[in-house]
């Protein structure tokens, strides 16, 4: 398994920049309050983990960031999610398509398109109207290299993405998210459908990727949060109970609830 990451967080000579900031967010599923007064910073080029028991709202919060809830009727947001550091914009007021063009997502179950490996990655550029072959070639190679998949698939880019193994499919989905150079990538329990070996490779990849992109990840595996994240928010019943740097959350939690959860007493 991966070694615990360099849990170096805010030091004096490395100021943290916020990539996003959730302010007083409430979220309703057809009238039912699912997220209560969420406040959460997401720091640039760091991994922020959302942990908590099933049904606590961590995936709901994650999917608010790229407005996935807008696809289904009866959902409503209140509050703000600010995106960007210099001139932040409230992404809840933006066009959802514009939001998704800046915030990529990797899903729980690998979901490559039933198209070629190449087209899976090129698609994000094609929807933006970029069809220049040379540009696409370059982006496909760069994204696959960043997702540690290039060497395995470079000779079969024309083969369907769905023919790859589960772990490779998930890395393909990561490459697809990277291709459009997003500000943030959301990971929704990306390893829960994978075997332990594929899990290690995805975790290693996330650790490497944080140098180029901001990452927000939902995980129900606390060891994973320790291994890959710098910040952790513990959620329970739709609220953030405690947020801190990962080491503090797991070694000296302030709230009793957090202590009970991270020590395995419930959840």
């Amino acid at each position: 398994m991966v070694k615990p990451t360099d849990s170096v967080v805010a030091t004096e000579n490395e100021p943290l920049k916020k990539m996003a900031q959730v302010r007083n967010l409430n979220f309703y599923y057809s009238g039912k309050l699912a997220l209560k007064n969420i406040n959460l910073p997401v720091y640039e080029k760091k991994v922020t983990a959302l942990i908590g028991p099933s049904g606590c709202g961590k995936t709901t919060l994650l999917r608010s960031f790229n407005r996935m809830h807008d696809l289904y009727p009866g959902n409503r947001y209140e509050g703000e999610i600010w995106l960007g550091d210099e001139n932040p914009r409230n992404l809840l007021q933006m066009d959802p398509i514009e939001v998704r063009m800046q915030i990529g997502m990797v899903f729980q179950k690998p979901n490559p398109f039933p198209k070629s490996i190449y087209e899976n990655i090129a698609y994000g550029l094609r929807v933006r109207g970029i069809n220049n072959r040379a540009i696409l070639d370059e982006v496909v190679e760069r994204s696959l290299r960043s997702a540690a998949l290039w060497d395995e698939v470079k000779d079969r880019l024309k083969e369907p993405g769905t023919a790859l193994s589960g772990g490779q499919q998930q890395r393909l989905c990561i490459a697809r998210a990277l291709a459009t150079d997003p500000a943030i990538i959301l990971f929704d329990e990306p390893t829960s459908a994978l075997d332990p070996i594929a899990t290690v490779s995805i975790e290693n990849l996330i650790v490497e990727l944080k140098d180029q992109v901001t990452i927000l990840i939902v995980t129900h595996n606390m060891q994973q949060a320790i291994r890959i994240s710098q910040f952790t928010a513990f959620m329970y019943l739709g609220e953030i109970v405690e947020y801190n740097d990962t080491m503090s959350i797991f070694t000296k939690p302030v709230e009793q609830k957090t202590a009970d959860y991270v020590s395995g007493r419930f959840g």
């Binding site: 996935m68 696809l71 063009m101 979901n111 398109f113 039933p114 929807v127 697809r176």
Partner: peptide, 12 residues
């Protein structure tokens, strides 16, 4: 999942 994947990369 396929629909969400398409939306997630910014499709209309």
């Amino acid at each position: 999942g396929i629909r969400e994947a398409a939306y997630a990369v910014g499709s209309s």
